[in-house]
Amino acid sequence: MAVAYFVTHPEVIIDPEVPVPQWGLSARGHERLQAFCARPILNSVSDIFVSDERKALDCAETLKSLRNLEFRIDPRLGENDRSSTGYVAPPRFWEIVAEFFAHPDTSILGWETAADAQRRIKTAVTESIAGRTGKGDVVIFSHGGVGTLLLCDLLGEPISQNRSQPISGGGCYFAFDADTLAIRHTWQDIVPEQS
């Protein structure tokens, strides 16, 4: 059975003068992503889907260059819409994120609600998988917030920040069966530590 990998972009260049969706990967993010894209677990990938945000596109372009695979862009794979506030520096950002997850049906400071973002990401992922052209595995490059929402849904759990990726800078993935959507494993580092 084909596997779907939901992958969050790793570290980015944070620039308050640039809209968040236009942020690209940092040197460290590129390094980690290159290592992930070379991993043998991706040998059977036939289809790549990606958010239209620059940091996710950087990921898809890296996998394309290493594996000679085209990718398809779907804006619905983007992060929860936070354009009402733009960039918010920590620690205030993390306070807002906590409210976002704690009150999924409420728009916090004009942000897209967690419930709406969850429906959007689930639809985008299932439609992407249904529309794949190959018979191999699928990689979806997206973002941590919506990844948490999708993981909660696939596990049949209520929306909760408890399912957030374990690396705050990003660069994690979870895997699920592409046909049944059954979880194979929850969040793991894209580049596991060598033992």
Rank of each mutant, 00 (worst) to 15 (best):
M1I: 10
M1E: 14
V3A: 11
V3Q: 15
F6H: 06
V7F: 08
V7G: 12
T8I: 07
P10Y: 09
P10T: 08
P10G: 12
E11R: 09
V12H: 03
I14C: 02
P16W: 06
E17V: 03
V18R: 12
V18Y: 09
P21G: 05
P21L: 01
W23E: 09
L25P: 10
S26M: 03
S26I: 02
R28G: 10
R28F: 14
Q34A: 12
Q34H: 12
A35D: 13
C37K: 03
A38Y: 06
R39C: 07
N43I: 07
N43R: 11
V45I: 11
D47Q: 11
I48C: 06
F49G: 00
F49M: 00
R54E: 10
R54C: 04
A56N: 08
D58M: 05
A60Q: 07
E61W: 04
T62F: 01
L63Q: 13
K64V: 00
S65G: 01
L66P: 02
R67K: 13
N68H: 12
N68G: 11
L69H: 05
E70D: 15
E70N: 15
R72M: 06
P75Q: 07
P75R: 03
P75L: 03
L77K: 06
G78P: 00
R82E: 02
S84A: 15
T85Y: 02
Y87H: 13
Y87R: 07
P90T: 04
P91G: 05
R92V: 04
I96N: 01
I96L: 12
E99H: 04
F100M: 02
F101K: 11
A102N: 11
H103Q: 09
P104E: 01
D105N: 14
S107F: 00
S107K: 01
I108S: 01
W111T: 05
E112M: 00
A114I: 08
A117N: 05
A117Y: 02
R119V: 00
I121F: 00
I121W: 00
V125Q: 00
T126D: 09
T126A: 10
I129R: 14
G134C: 11
G134K: 15
G134V: 11
K135F: 15
D137G: 13
V138R: 08
V138T: 13
V139G: 08
V139K: 07
I140R: 05
F141P: 11
F141I: 05
S142W: 05
S142D: 10
H143V: 01
G144L: 02
G144P: 07
G144H: 08
V146Y: 01
G147N: 08
T148Y: 11
L150P: 04
L151Y: 04
L151A: 02
L154P: 05
S160Y: 08
S160Q: 03
Q161D: 14
S164T: 13
Q165D: 06
P166A: 07
P166Q: 05
G170L: 14
Y173T: 10
Y173W: 14
D177Q: 14
D177G: 12
T180L: 06
I183R: 12
R184V: 08
H185V: 09
T186K: 11
T186V: 07
W187N: 07
W187V: 03
Q188A: 13
P192A: 14
S195K: 09
